[in-house]
């Protein structure tokens, strides 16, 4: 046995634990779900191979609506996070007394366990004793109590706002770091030339933040697209399916109705969408930092 060959074997032995880990934790469930999506697996003992029937069933049913709704939900959630994050980061960056306190106070939604934050929002959305409905009544914006989670339209926006609330601290801190990494001489040069504060923000801060905004929105897109807990705790996909996103529908089909085959088909679709997002993310980040290309 020559040296090269024994080196190769040694390398494979070193790789083995990691390969095994990925195979058992990632590859096996993925492949199994894929196979499952072509069967009519359920709690019954007999499982038949049904080919593409599950996928045909998905597209004949209301699932097209669900896909559209998921994209609308994700779009508004991610863009609101980016807008509020930019707004918050530029405020927290301004040199006023107390800004370190403000920065600290931004963090709680990120620190608190997600479910607790969502329950607090659920309490606030309540029509009878919730804060938002009560405040809106007091300032005369609405006449009677509004149960936000009871109507399709308001429930849809309520879940978006809760998702934005959970995502905003991370986005804000990330953008704050991006703003702070912009060289000060740029601002000083522009300032010496007489550029105002807003003009400097628009022509220096924003353009130099764009890479961070794109990176963050891609990451946020992936996390938001399959965000399950917010909608499930607040509305469980209700009222009459108005807040059912793809992941909620998958859960309801696979775990709720025990139709494992059809659920797996939905999961495969989600997996395809998410892989596309991940691919886009890697392409974009690689284009944004070409010098880091390995």
């Amino acid at each position: 046995m020559n040296v090269q060959r024994s080196n190769l074997i040694f390398a494979w032995i070193l790789l083995l634990p990691a390969v095994l880990y990925v195979a058992v934790i990632v590859a096996y469930p993925l492949v199994d779900t894929f196979i499952l999506s072509f069967t009519d697996a359920s709690l019954r003992k007999v499982t038949n191979w049904v080919g593409w029937a599950n996928y045909e069933k998905i597209f004949n049913a209301t699932f097209a609506d669900v896909i559209v709704r998921t994209f609308i939900w994700t779009f508004f959630s991610v863009s609101l996070k980016m807008i509020i994050g930019t707004f918050g980061a530029s405020l927290l960056n301004s040199a006023v007394p107390g800004r370190s306190l403000f920065r600290l106070l931004t963090m709680p939604p990120w620190v608190v366990p997600m479910a607790i934050g969502i329950f607090m929002w659920g309490w606030m959305y309540n029509g009878q004793f919730g804060m938002i409905s009560g405040m809106l009544q007091r300032i005369g914006f609405v006449d009677g109590p509004v149960a936000f989670l009871a109507y399709g339209n308001t429930a849809f926006w309520a879940t978006i706002i809760t998702d934005v609330w959970i995502g905003v601290p991370m986005v804000t801190i990330y953008f704050l770091a991006a703003i702070q990494s912009i060289p000060k001489d740029l601002y000083e040069a522009a300032w010496t030339d007489g550029a105002g504060r807003f003009y400097r923000f628009r022509r220096i801060t924003l353009p130099l933040m764009v890479p961070s905004i794109i990176t963050m929105s891609m990451l946020s897109l992936i996390a938001t697209f399959n965000s399950f807990d917010i909608i499930w705790i607040l509305t469980q996909g209700g009222p009459s399916g108005q807040t059912t996103t793809m992941i909620i529908d998958t859960y309801q089909t696979a775990i709720g109705s025990k139709k494992y085959g059809e659920g797996a088909a939905r999961a495969v679709l989600i997996c395809i969408f998410l892989s596309a997002f991940c691919f886009a993310y890697f392409r974009v980040t690689r284009r944004l930092n070409p010098e880091k290309r390995a």
């Binding site: 707004f87 405020l91 006023v96 403000f102 931004t106 709680p108």
Partner: peptide
């Protein structure tokens, strides 16, 4: 900052932190 810029910044921070902290206050 001029006084109105400081006022605007604090107003913005107030709005931002109201959104972030409202559930905790409640």
């Amino acid at each position: 900052y001029s006084w109105w810029e400081i006022l605007l910044i604090y107003l913005g921070v107030l709005v931002f932190l109201t959104f972030v902290l409202a559930p905790f206050v409640e």
